[in-house]
Write a protein that binds this DNA or RNA. Sequence first.
DNA 1: CGGGCTCTTGAATCACTTCAACGCTGGTGG
DNA 2: CCACCAGCGTTGAAGTGATTCAAGAGCCCG
Lengths: 242, 242
Amino acid sequence: MPKRIPVAPESTRCSTCMLSELCLPLGMARDDVAKLDELIKERIRIPKGSALFHLGEKTEAVYGIRSGSLKTQLEDASGQIQITSFLLPGEIVGMDGLLDNVHLSHAIALEDSEVCIIRIDEMDELARHLPVLQQQLRRLMSKEIGRSHQLVMALGALRSEQRLAAFLVNLSQRLSALGYSASEFILRMSREEIGNYLGLTLETVSRLFSRFARENLIRVRQREVHILDMHGLQALAGTDCG
Amino acid sequence: MPKRIPVAPESTRCSTCMLSELCLPLGMARDDVAKLDELIKERIRIPKGSALFHLGEKTEAVYGIRSGSLKTQLEDASGQIQITSFLLPGEIVGMDGLLDNVHLSHAIALEDSEVCIIRIDEMDELARHLPVLQQQLRRLMSKEIGRSHQLVMALGALRSEQRLAAFLVNLSQRLSALGYSASEFILRMSREEIGNYLGLTLETVSRLFSRFARENLIRVRQREVHILDMHGLQALAGTDCG
DNA sequence: CGGGCTCTTGAATCACTTCAACGCTGGTGG
DNA sequence: CCACCAGCGTTGAAGTGATTCAAGAGCCCG
């Protein structure tokens, strides 16, 4: 388990960060975002495959993803694992640990990544003079609840092909919001991880990719995905019907 | 859809409420709980089958359940429904609407129920003089995230019998925390609702109840459940291994 | 005492998993 | 530079857990 590496802070602050439309500052006034510069003073580099935090560790902060991507996963008493999210830049990780300040999940980097540390005690301190900050965290937590509920819906109500279609559409939209192509991207997770996330086996996921390709919905080459028929995918996922 | 009925406030306040160990005041100092009395000034009676709120409605408050029980359910564009929680007294409902102050789910009473209104704007106001209150809501939201993740785990990683066993154990524990019997209780939801929640059909749920009864894990008569072998159920659910 | 739910149970079917074999790819060392 | 190996991905065939379809029983309410 490689260690966390603090990063010199001079480089980038919230006020100058490209992600400030999405991350903690989401929807905040320009002046208020500038005040976040005194909150976000440290970052951490996480090498691919290593953990930002583990289940059971003390929660002292939540983290805004600056670059790279992570997964979070639960682990039960028998060692069974369930991935509960794949996280992209601008998204916040660690909010499940704020009940008793103990992490309930593992957060693991899918590639070399960097996260900004948002210390909870310092955030409370700053929030005295910047009440909007509490509302901000509240909104982000509400977003996380909604995201998790969507996953419950996928697992409880959708069939395998719909789950994978919804997964691809969702990923595409999030990457698009970051300024990347909505139709061409590289998956940072394995078939097995996708399967675990969607409650399927890796074989089923693989077969579905092949089938989607056969039906000209997508083109796949290993982890490289081209979406050819976004409308068709959305129809499959059941998330269109506008 | 019967309307909401405000209830005279003189009756009960947080400071005298039986549920103050569980609800919003969870873990707060006695003096601080007393200050909540100026926040919780209204309650709502919700008749069985009617809604506390609907998807798409504006979110101005979250609600602490005072008596009865509710379900929350998502509904997608095609009308497909997924129940995401069953809520008991002392639990908070409506926190998924705090992203854009629009509810993302329906909340429907499973029996005649009563909820306390926690207006968000008034809570923010009170929190200026009572900072612990923000932390309180944050903890409750974190709890909701954890709860939803547990459901994801059940849907993604457990087989039908494990899901139902986990469901029963969980319900038993929550009822027990409210002072009710852990081994005998009445289900307030139908087989179909349980099935929807657990990603199963009502027939599968019914068969599992019969099988659990045959294996002397429980006794069932309609919605009346006696747990005969809690340890066996926990083993099935995979949540023991202590 | 119907009549409409909810629940139970059985038989047939199906979606997904399991088991198994093979292919691709990228890194390593001879 | 190529051979080799390990990990990841693909594909097929057999198996199975849960669903679907269907019929009937039990229960509650007017």
